[in-house]
Design a protein around this nucleic acid. Structure first.
Lengths: 114, 114
DNA sequence: GTCAACCATAGACTATACTCTACTGTTGAC
DNA sequence: GTCAACAGTAGAGTATAGTCTATGGTTGAC
């Protein structure tokens, strides 16, 4: 698919996808035979961008997401390193969940005392 | 206390506190008798800034924090409006907790499949 | 009385994450 | 063959949340 379809599939804007391309979140392939220089994207591109969206919504920075994508799909890390990275992210999430729960408790207490 | 002590008590920098002052997160009082124009802060200022830090760590924007502080300490809203605001924030937190748990589950699944 | 440490205001600078504009080339329906 | 819709690159602009610099006045220990 071309970038426009990828945008529709992921709900991201074409601009944002191009921006993410600079981070290496997705990269299309060019058809040598064609005389245009359009990039083509596959299903993995959709999945990668969905992961980006999910990771962003839980507060990971684009830097962290780059690392996560590499651990998830890439081959720069060994299996053991990948597990380490994933585990690290899980611990961050646990800490964040705790903060959210604490804040919720504070809000509930404040409401009761009103 | 003066701003320097407030910074030490809250762990925020003096710069950040001054920046937050523009948002109305804290405001000091001036001593008319004194010939300086130093601002003095009370214990509520410490509490307010601690709430700001907590709210920030769970992902609220400064705009949202301004509203929360008003609902918490201010008198621009009625009790019923305050409860509405608090409840709104709690629902946001619930949604965010769910996202975090989903992401955690995804990461765990990915780790197992490695 | 002087010097470091503090106070205030105003405004410039930075990082992150987009978002948009300008410009140019390609494709496909009519 | 032309025109809207889409493709690409480069770079400017925006929003949020700080962070720092410049400048000048104040305080208190010595």
């Amino acid at each position: 698919m071309l970038i426009n379809e990828l945008a529709k599939r992921t709900g991201l804007s074409v601009h944002t996808i191009r921006f993410y391309e600079r981070y290496g979140f997705v990269k299309g392939t060019r058809n040598e035979a064609a005389r245009n220089n359009y990039f083509h994207y596959d299903e993995e591109a959709v999945q990668r961008l969905e992961l980006v969206a999910d990771a962003k919504s839980v507060g990971f920075t684009l830097q962290e997401i780059a690392e996560l994508l590499d651990a998830w799909y890439g081959n720069t890390y060994t299996k053991s390193q990948k597990r380490q990275i994933m585990l690290g992210k899980i611990l961050v999430l646990d800490a964040r969940i705790k903060e959210l729960r604490d804040m919720k408790r504070q809000l509930q207490k404040c409401m009761e005392e009103l």
